[in-house]
């Protein structure tokens, strides 16, 4: 087991742990805004960690560059959609203040 493989595995385990924890947090956290925190955590920490693990595993080259592009896409898309969901939540919660939570 080379050091590079080991580093990839460590990154992979960390990323998967973050993702699974955020998914569990989604169920545990009650309020909609807290859930949004879980969402941004997944897209800006979990997904890039896994992508980094894959890039370390494949080594430098075009394949790794493609992986990093996909990772950047996921991170950017996740951030913007989190903001959009936040805005939708604000508008809807203002409209119906009683029915917050679920």
């Amino acid at each position: 087991m080379t050091p590079r493989h080991l580093a990839a595995l460590v990154l992979l385990v960390a990323g998967v742990a973050v993702l699974v924890l955020t998914a569990l947090a989604l169920v545990v956290l009650p309020a909609p805004y807290l859930r949004l925190h879980a969402l941004s955590c997944a897209t800006s920490l979990g997904a890039p960690l896994v992508v980094l693990a894959l890039a370390v595993e494949t080594g430098p080259g075009r394949a790794a560059a493609k992986l990093l592009v996909i990772g950047a896409l996921l991170a950017a898309g996740g951030t913007v959609t989190t903001m959009a969901i936040g805005r939708a939540t604000v508008l809807l919660e203002e409209a119906q203040p009683k029915e917050s939570g679920h």
Binding site: R35, L39, G46, A47
Partner: peptide, 15 residues
């Protein structure tokens, strides 16, 4: 509120 779940699922499935 459901949308949050769908969005996170999208990220998870992509990874």
């Amino acid at each position: 509120l459901r949308l949050v779940g769908v969005n996170l699922a999208g990220t998870l499935v992509a990874v």
